[in-house]
Write a protein that binds this DNA or RNA. Structure first.
Lengths: 330, 330
DNA sequence: TCGCCTTGTGTGACCGGTCACATTCATGCC
DNA sequence: GGCATGAATGTGACCGGTCACACAAGGCGA
């Protein structure tokens, strides 16, 4: 213990915490001892005594899909900058008991919570978090659960889908079909809403959305179905992985993209620019979203941390090869 | 406190820890009180008093690339099953001081450490971990640092590269060019070794490996270079993202795959099966690798946890559309 | 010269648990 | 009946810090 090396015992604590009333000479001596002994204060003891943990646990159903992974990355960056520890708890199922158990574990870890509520498991988890725990939700749409005044962050999915749909309509397509990602709730997702809104404004027919999954396999299945319908000339996909599957299905069924059918994705995943054809998509700033989520939580946890305003970043349409004008009419 | 509700104070601890000598009636009473008050023992206090943390920190330079992300997923699965908490510390740079700081933070968190040493930052971090800390390394090759007897896990990259190269040679290609991922050290990577070994055994010429990066952009640049060389008929890439970039470059330069040039990747990323052409690659079980890493650490941390043998999973060649026989000779 | 305020430092309680030991009580044996 | 024995429970110290307060020394005005 630095006590022996230096002089006292509590004084060490004062030096470390930068307490003003320590004689400069004493401070010097203590600092020297700390340096020499390579002393580091025990984080566990600190947490127990002070109550502050400087830790954040992220609850999420997925860690690998582009959006999720980028959010995690953003949270980690910001957490590291604030000397916070980031733990991850994966929600393996949306089943009530499993979610409750995961939330319990996260609560036990102390510190703050960030829940990614893009799917039923995440939504349930967010609901299951006890009211007294500091938590920030990353949600699909701000039109969230009524009466819940917890802080949250989101991307403007509606606007993004709206832009992508208008882009396709602007190219001359009669209408745009939509392959949806699973919705976080039973309600219509923001992406679906934006797509529908654009169609309505243009007076275009509103086909039924095709239900997809999160990965390319779902897109592939949806693509095969849509390929059967010869009237389809434009497809918007709920994310780039779905779009990848759709592209593959169209290729296998001999439909050319964008010659016969245009395809647009969602999220601008890293590989989308390198596909053949490269994918038209809407870029969303998930990393920034993660950063905002942490900043918000940080503000809740420490009043010293000014609650940074979290500007909802504007989605950016990225036009590439996979979208073009529809084939000339017969 | 359950003390008041029940009877004693230490007895609660006994009940929770399943100590044998507690009268059944007392146990009942305490359990009832725990249930009623929703009592959960404080993880921080537990860690402080007992010294055991039930936490693992993973140090990694990346969280989003397929291999890294899958390893993290595997660790998390296993950690959750063992009621461990998983924290992630990202190594932002390979710079000495930055790495040291990251290791310090991880050490402060208590518990065990897993370091993904696939890159210079990771390798440095593994070296910087103090000897007394329980740590497992996920390394590129077992021919690691001499004199270091720490547990580690790895995939048989050499064998995987060997298989892929033999596959291409077996199709009739004169030789196989290689686009490398950055090596974790200055030494030749295991993948490069396996590739070279296959070439040698076949008596094929050994072209210089083309240096790539981790992402598709590097593959694209490498692909443009290789496309200039009309003698190139087969390209092995250090990972599937590089292969994606190569495919794109070949497409843009008008070379057909696999008609003129065959391409093979590495890792079998989720999207590789859906590319056009779908990608021949070598599947590696990164998730299993992550699970093994945790199991190994668990064994180090608690003698009760039997150190599961970690079979180095056999890489599996997945042949798809991107590889085929070379074009007929002139 | 006394009292008071300020500055610097030490002391004891506490955070919420675990651990080693002491204590109480019932039981079985000689 | 006395005593060793084991089961069931309580007590005090401790993990490594923080916090509130007590206390000693020095400077200054009255």
């Amino acid at each position: 213990m630095a006590t022996a090396a230096g002089v006292s015992y509590q004084t060490v604590s004062r030096v470390i915490n930068g307490h003003p009333s320590v004689k400069p000479s004493t401070r010097e001596r203590v600092l020297a001892a700390i340096e020499e002994l390579g002393f580091r204060r025990n984080a566990t003891a600190l947490a127990l005594a002070s109550g502050r943990t400087r830790a954040v646990t992220v609850l999420t159903a997925n860690t690998t899909h582009h959006g999720y992974a980028s959010i995690l990355q953003g949270i980690e960056e910001e957490a590291r900058a604030a000397s916070y520890t980031m733990a991850i708890g994966v929600l393996e199922s949306a089943e009530e008991a499993a979610v409750a158990a995961a939330v319990q574990r996260a609560a036990d870890a102390g510190g703050g919570l960030i829940v990614i509520a893009y799917d039923p498991a995440g939504v349930r988890a967010l609901e299951a978090v006890p009211a007294e725990l500091p938590v920030v939700g990353v949600v699909e749409t701000p039109a969230g659960r009524p009466g819940d005044d917890r802080p949250w962050v989101w991307t403007d999915d509606r606007e993004a889908a709206y832009q992508a749909t208008r882009h396709l309509l602007g190219l001359g397509h009669e209408t745009v079909h939509y392959v949806a990602i699973p919705s976080s709730t039973r309600r219509t997702s923001a992406r679906t809403t934006g797509w529908r809104q654009a169609l309505r404004e243009a007076g275009a027919p509103e086909p039924r959305p095709v239900q997809g999954s999160w990965g390319p396999a779902g897109g592939y299945a949806a693509g095969l179905r849509l390929a059967e319908d010869k009237s389809v000339t434009a497809i918007l996909c709920g994310n780039d992985d779905l779009a990848l599957g759709v592209l593959r299905a169209l290729h296998e069924t001999g439909r050319s993209v964008p010659g016969e059918i245009s395809v647009a994705g969602f999220d601008d995943a890293p590989h989308s620019a390198y596909l053949t054809p490269s994918l038209t998509t809407v870029r969303l700033d998930f990393t920034g979203l993660g950063r905002s989520a942490f900043a918000l939580l940080h503000g809740v946890l420490e009043e010293s941390a000014r609650i940074a305003p979290h500007p909802v970043s504007v989605p950016e349409l990225v036009v590439r090869e996979s979208s073009g004008p529809p084939p000339a009419r017969d």
